[in-house]
Design a binder for these strands. Structure first.
Lengths: 198, 198
DNA sequence: TACTTTTGCTAACAGTGTTAACTTATTTAG
DNA sequence: CTAAATAAGTTAACACTGTTAGCAAAAGTA
């Protein structure tokens, strides 16, 4: 039964594809990634890549999943260092912001034209994990008697604030130094928390 | 002196390029725009396009400018229908949101990988116009004795909220109906206004 | 050993942005 | 009105891209 070994090796090649893609992404961004370059790096010919990933978008989707996983980890870490919900939420915001800029290329893949077909996206469980962490913290901050819908609304608002801040800064549309950016983040989060039980 | 007429005609061709590009954008999105398609639509051969625009990014930049112009108009209209600064800011938020979804393809060009080199962006005056309108309204809402920097910070926060909400909804990451999206917008803007003098 | 399946290859298709080199009009100067 | 200079527009190519069809070689199975 060498089939087991074969499957294992197959998985290894699949990983090496992702690894090759990552190294290109980190050096030159996703836009510079091409199937040919990947093939060259992993030492196989071009069509081999297609036996592991249906197309280029499938590779990107893999990165999106990994990205949300990493992000979730980072947020959870930040949250668990504190016990007060308000501080936790602030810490989550900081961690989100930090992740986005530390792994700038990842973040751009996760949200840039990254997201391909809107239909498939809702079935990516990794995004669900991310949501859960944030929602749990928001729930702790809310008075009781808030229905499910209101909680999701607040989560959505919070995420929007984080993402908006992040992406506008990333495009560098306002040429603001990083220290000021963090002030803005705190400003926005403060406003959010202050208004949370309305 | 037929030079005048020639310049006029040249300008006409330049406009027709933009027009052709726009029609493709509206039908299939920016990603489907190619120089060859533009050339075919305007009835010239391919390199003619390059005599009017240095490269494809230059065409995109033109759209970004037009987009910010249109956006500015829309915001100004919304603002001028009211006199109370708080209502004005809310109206601006609504108008921003509406613009983004009514001209979805434009908005995506303006903020999607749209923004190319971070350096050049800061010299696009159309973005400055947009900023001015919003900043003026925010200024009316602020107590006196707020320095320039604080105002810019508040503007930045506000814009981030708007853009975050818009782009997350556009990616449809949360599959939220439009009515709820507007609730979220109001929620976020309320929080912003409530915290504005801190 | 013979057969079948997997694995990997080369080569091609249909595109893309961009540019070099050439031809044809048109404008200007003598 | 002709001749030189300039502008306009052309075809053809370069160097890429994602993707797939068809074929050769290697590996597993009988």
């Amino acid at each position: 039964m060498a089939t087991e070994k074969r499957l294992k090796q197959k998985e290894a090649v699949k990983d090496s594809i992702l690894c090759a893609a990552r190294s290109i992404v980190l050096k030159e961004g996703w836009q510079a990634v091409s199937i040919r370059k990947i093939a060259e790096v992993i030492g196989y010919s071009l069509p081999v890549v297609y036996t592991h990933y249906e197309n280029k978008d499938a590779i990107l989707e893999e990165f999106v999943k990994l990205g949300f996983d990493e992000l979730s980890m980072a947020l959870l870490d930040a949250k668990n260092k504190l016990s007060n919900p308000e501080q936790q939420l602030t810490a989550i915001a900081d961690a989100y912001f930090e992740f986005a800029f530390a792994k700038r290329e990842y973040y751009q893949m996760m949200f840039g034209l990254g997201m391909p077909s809107c239909e498939r996206v809702n079935q990516i469980s990794e995004i669900g994990n991310f949501s859960s962490i944030v929602i749990a913290t928001i729930q702790d901050l809310l008075d009781e008697a808030h229905n499910e819908e209101k909680i999701r609304l607040k989560f959505h608002t919070f995420w929007s604030i984080l993402h908006g801040l992040t992406s506008i800064n990333m495009a560098n549309l306002t040429a603001t130094p990083h220290s000021v950016q963090q002030l803005i983040l705190q400003d926005a989060v403060q406003g959010f928390i202050k208004n949370i039980n309305n």
